[in-house]
């Protein structure tokens, strides 16, 4: 094998992985989006931050059971807490979080889950996920919001399923 041909092979050996890496990343996105069901937060409408107390659903923040195992959590983020601050659901529940802010930009991140949204005054953020593993999970504000940013922590409690979880 002559030297030039070897050099050519060498070059190909660099180029192919360089092409393969971005393709692998793209494939990973498609898989996370469609197979694993991880979605990015979407703009779910707008709301006047001054009128939260009179605008449904934010006039009654809290957890609502829509159907067995299907919940909707309406959350208002404000300086420096979440309302409600603690949410308790049985394992296996599918929860849709509908969140907005009363004042400045906040974050809504539930540890060990795909939920991570920027919470923007004037905008409603919405994400849905299923919680299978019982335990206590912190909810962090991850967008810097002022002097009490580090205090802005909530809690999600996933209790063991009510019935023996046979048909999840």
């Amino acid at each position: 094998m002559n030297r030039k041909y070897l050099g050519y092979l060498f070059e190909i050996a660099w180029i192919l992985p360089s092409v393969a890496v971005p393709i692998a990343f793209m494939v990973a996105i498609v898989i996370t989006a469609f197979a694993v069901g991880i979605a990015v937060p979407g703009d779910a409408g707008r709301v006047d931050p001054k009128a939260l107390s009179t605008t449904a659903p934010f006039d009654q923040p809290g957890l609502r059971e829509l159907a067995p195992g299907r919940y909707e959590a309406v959350v208002i983020a404000q300086l420096f807490n979440f309302s409600p601050g603690e949410i308790e659901i049985p394992a296996g529940s599918k929860v849709t979080f509908i969140v907005t802010s009363r004042d400045v930009i906040h974050g809504y991140k539930i540890e060990k889950s795909p939920i991570n949204m920027m919470v923007i005054p004037g905008q409603i953020s919405r994400m849905t996920t299923t919680f299978d593993t019982p335990g206590e999970y912190y909810i962090y504000c991850h967008e810097y919001c002022g002097a009490g940013h580090h205090l802005m922590v909530g809690k999600l409690i996933v209790t063991p399923a009510k019935t023996a979880s046979t048909n999840r």
Binding site: V21, F25, I29, A33, I38, P41, G107, N116, M118, H142
Partner: peptide, 16 residues
């Protein structure tokens, strides 16, 4: 940076 460029991964890492 490339991992952060992927929106689903980025959403997990945002502001961490």
């Amino acid at each position: 940076g490339i991992t952060l460029a992927s929106p689903p991964i980025n959403v997990q890492q945002t502001d961490s």
